[in-house]
């Protein structure tokens, strides 16, 4: 048993090393951000370049971001907006994807293609007409405006991702569930949702990050400081004459880490056993 484990370990070693190397290369900019946030302001720009903090670690940026702005408030706002938008987007796209994948919707595939078309126009140009719409709806300077915008902008991806996924799940499974007395939609939801784990996980991650990081709409639609989201909060460290790199980097690290932690939990659903096993069964 031990010998087998060891052999397996040795076989896995190259993959592990390769993965480590790839991760390291991709993480370099992030490591640079962390190092920057921990350097004294006077050590930031040096020539020759100084990689590590020389005169002790400077933690102050991590305490200052909470007092300098309303970072805690921004954090809460972003969490709220991103969660609601993700929920709405996933719900809408699950239903739409079941519709596309399981029912005969006339011109469904072209409609699906049309969904994508909405993403082909430069976003910066949609801002002025968008502003007018939000104003007419009287929801400027509310989180609702952002939720609506983010939900719509993540829908095309989500619908595409999920439709593809649902189509791969055999419909016979639902029919046997229906024999058990469930309604068709109920059966579909009960059978499809657990099987579509990876697809839904990818959709959730996508929608959440889109809402978490969006800047253009947030800065145009939200004017009250207490309603701002994290990207606007971060922008405030970028000044007209100079950027407060310590705060900007500390803020970015604090913004990034929770999402990564969230993903550590979510990524379970991207793992083989769950779906492959289920489809097999």
């Amino acid at each position: 048993m031990a010998a087998v484990g060891l052999r397996r370990r040795t076989r896995q070693l190259p993959a592990m090393l390769a993965a480590f190397l790839v991760c390291f290369v991709f993480a370099i900019p992030f490591l640079w951000m962390i190092l920057t946030s921990l350097k004294l302001p006077s050590e930031l720009f040096t020539s020759p370049v100084q990689v590590f903090p020389r005169s002790g670690v400077y933690w102050e940026a991590y305490t200052r971001i909470w007092t300098a702005g309303q970072f805690g408030r921004y954090f809460w706002n972003s969490t709220l907006v991103a969660t609601v938008a993700t929920g709405a987007s996933v719900a809408l796209s699950v239903f739409a994807a079941i519709g596309f994948a399981r029912y005969k919707v006339r011109g469904g595939n072209y409609l699906l293609l049309g969904v994508l078309l909405s993403q082909l126009f430069p976003l910066v140009l949609l801002v002025p007409p968008f502003y007018a719409v939000m104003r007419e709806l009287r929801i400027l300077d509310t989180h609702l405006a952002l939720v609506i915008a983010y939900t719509s902008f993540s829908l095309p991806f989500s619908i595409w991702m999920l439709t593809g996924y649902f189509r791969s799940i055999p419909a016979e499974l639902e029919e046997s569930a229906m024999i058990d007395g469930a309604t068709r939609l109920g059966a579909q939801l009960r059978v499809i949702l657990p099987l579509a784990g990876p697809g839904i996980a990818a959709t959730v991650i996508y929608s959440f990050i889109l809402a978490w990081n969006e800047f253009l709409f947030a800065t145009t639609f939200i004017s009250s400081p207490e309603l701002r989201t994290l990207p606007i909060g971060l922008q405030s460290f970028i000044g007209q004459y100079s950027t407060d790199w310590n705060l900007l980097m500390a803020g970015a690290v604090v913004t990034t880490v929770p999402v990564i932690v969230l993903f550590v939990f979510l990524q379970r659903y991207l793992v083989a056993g769950l779906t492959a096993g289920a489809v097999k069964g």
């Binding site: 993965a19 480590f20 790839v22 991760c23 991709f26 993480a27 900019p29 992030f30 951000m33 991650i205 990050i209 978490w212 990081n213 800047f215 994290l230 990207p231 971060l234 922008q235 970028i238 900007l248 980097m249 803020g251 970015a252 913004t255 990034t256 999402v259 990564i260 993903f263 550590v264 990524q267 379970r268 991207l270 793992v271």
Partner: peptide, 18 residues
Amino acid sequence: GIARSVMLIPWVIPSVVA
């Protein structure tokens, strides 16, 4: 699992800061 999470970092960093 860790590797997958780490690989996600570039995408999660707010684009302005990145």
